[in-house]
Amino acid sequence: MEQIRRVIAGLATGVTAIALVGVTFPGPRAADIPDSRGDPWAGKPVESVGKIITDLGDGRVGVCSGAVVDSPSGSVVATAAHCVNTPDFPDTPIRGWFAPGYDRIGTAGAMKSGWKIESYHTPPGWDVSQRIEKILPHDYAFVTVEKKDGESVQDAHGANALAFTPVDARQRVVALGYAAGPPFDGESLSYCAGAVELLTEVTAHKSNVGGLLLEPCRLTRGASGGPWLQGFDEASRTGTVVGVLSVGSGAGQVLGRPYPAHTGRALFERAARAS
């Protein structure tokens, strides 16, 4: 636990060479979903959650996760800021796609059937000219996706509610994402579920203060940006996004980053207006 509390863990994103990737009755409510350390999602497809694929140039492809959140435009997807850019890769992606309900269709399939990303929205504090440990508290973002024949991604696949801080850390979360590092392959949805701890100045390195700690959870790179949901209802397969996956220790600890009440809401409104 001290590894993620006291130091900065590696980003749980995924970047790979483009040449190596391929072209009846309601279920249980959140309280009934068993704790999970990182298992394949065995429930009905969660269409409001999907895979984000970005073209970073020079043959590089970024792989992250995201979730549709309820918005006036119906075109807003919540994800992590480091899924957009980082100090090591400061440029905004050349192109990007969001593939809701992604399940073993390959990168080429996601590019063909996914929703094109029209704009990326990171908070002012996500200044990639700075060191990662300085900007990590701002590791939340939104992307705005296209409409298809006038229909929004929310109309087509549903949406989750979005909560801003303060987050009730007494409630369990279900963390969803397309983990791509071993033992996962990034081709199907995985999840962790359990109680969380809200990290404070007393318990955490300042870069992680305000984050939500979930352990044990073995989600790996590719799950970055995936939603941390409270009140998940498998009947509708939606919940309330209280954070997005930011970093992982590689030793069974992951950190979710909530959306701050002021800057997070302003960023959301900007993303909703961009459609």
Rank of each mutant, 00 (worst) to 15 (best):
G50Y: 01
P93G: 06
G74V: 02
K116E: 15
G101Y: 02
N85S: 14
T92R: 13
A80F: 03
I117F: 04
A81I: 11
L136C: 01
Y102K: 09
Q130R: 15
A99W: 00
R104G: 03
K134V: 10
C83R: 12
A110K: 07
D88A: 15
I135F: 06
G62L: 01
K116C: 00
P124V: 13
Q130H: 10
K134F: 05
S48H: 07
A110I: 01
T79D: 06
S129H: 11
G109P: 08
W115Y: 14
S113E: 13
G125E: 14
H121N: 14
D127Y: 08
S129C: 01
P87H: 15
L136V: 11
D127H: 08
Q130L: 12
G109K: 07
C83P: 04
F89L: 14
D70T: 12
F89D: 15
W115P: 01
M111V: 09
G66H: 07
A80K: 05
H82Y: 12
P123Q: 13
A80P: 05
G109C: 05
N85P: 00
I105Y: 10
R131K: 12
P45A: 13
W97C: 06
E133L: 01
Q130W: 03
W97N: 09
P72E: 09
S75R: 15
V61G: 04
G50H: 02
L136K: 07
H82L: 06
Y120Q: 06
G74P: 04
H82E: 08
V68M: 14
G101Q: 06
W97Y: 14
L136N: 07
T54V: 11
G109R: 09
W115A: 09
S119W: 02
M111N: 08
D55V: 10
W126N: 09
Y120P: 05
K134G: 02
S73W: 02
A110R: 08
A99C: 13
H82P: 05
D103Y: 13
V49I: 10
S129Q: 14
F89C: 00
T79E: 03
P45Q: 11
C83M: 08
P72C: 08
A108P: 00
W115C: 02
G96N: 05
